[in-house]
């Protein structure tokens, strides 16, 4: 029973996980207060013969407190979330001159276009590999997501990355891996009967290995 967030391997994952655990603590406290209150009241005020309930229509003071406290906490959380969100997905958050890949989803595979030896996408030396996504660690990379048929969703749990790929749109996202290794892309949006098996291999290299792999692929083509 492994009920935890999987290993995190991205810079964005650090802040996402931190925010997750902040919310977990806040909601955990609220959860314990509410559930303990319900159980305590249920026992303490259970029916007793001859006992008459306390007649009240409410308390303005109490109601103001329990409106204001959640409102303030939620407002702070909203503003903090908004800042983190802008760092990840904001219009100016996309890094300049980062290594760029095109990822085109279709039922039920991922086709990745690599920038080739010049390091630039949309040039003559680009090459395409099906269901294999290799990229270098420790530098930001951009993925331009597209779909050929229906909506898919590009999900790599260890990178804390998820973004729908929508036909007719090109959606750029970025991330920076902090370690190397082999993982998987999963499709997170129901896309048809092969949805469950629409996975692809993710291989994160250090930069030298990536360049070597890329050169090998280009030569092979």
């Amino acid at each position: 029973m492994d009920w935890s967030l999987p290993l995190n391997l991205s810079t964005q994952g650090v802040v996402i996980d931190r925010l997750f655990w902040i919310i977990a603590v806040l909601t955990g406290v609220a959860f314990i207060l509410v559930e303990a209150g319900i159980i305590w009241f249920s026992i303490k005020y259970r029916r007793r013969d001859g006992q008459k309930a306390h007649y009240t229509h409410g308390s303005k003071k109490a109601e103001i407190i329990w409106t204001a406290v959640p409102a303030v906490i939620l407002a702070v959380l909203g503003i903090y979330s908004g800042g983190v969100w802008a760092d990840i997905r904001g219009a100016s958050a996309l890094p300049q001159d980062a290594l760029t890949f095109n990822v085109v989803a279709k039922q039920f595979e991922w086709n990745i276009t690599y920038p080739g030896s010049d390091g630039r996408i949309d040039t003559a030396d680009d090459f395409v590999v099906r269901n294999q996504f290799h990229f270098p660690a420790n530098e930001p990379v951009i993925v331009r997501l597209e779909s050929e048929d229906v909506i898919h969703s590009f999900f790599v749990p260890e990178l804390r990355v998820k973004q729908d790929a929508v036909p007719g749109m090109t959606i750029p996202i970025w991330f920076e891996a902090t370690g190397t290794g082999e993982y998987q892309i999963a499709c997170a949006e129901l896309c048809g009967l092969g949805h469950y098996s629409m996975d692809a291999q993710v291989v994160i290299h250090d930069r030298a290995d990536f360049d070597a792999w890329s050169a090998g692929q280009a030569a092979g083509n």
Partner: peptide
């Protein structure tokens, strides 16, 4: 009373998704 106890859990877990960065990870899970 069970409703109040369970709805509270459902309400609290909703806060995770309302936070957009956390939603990146837990959306569609």
């Amino acid at each position: 009373v069970g409703f109040v106890a369970m709805f509270a859990i459902g309400g609290l877990s909703g806060i995770f998704m309302a936070s957009t960065p956390v939603d990146i990870y837990i959306h569609d899970t």
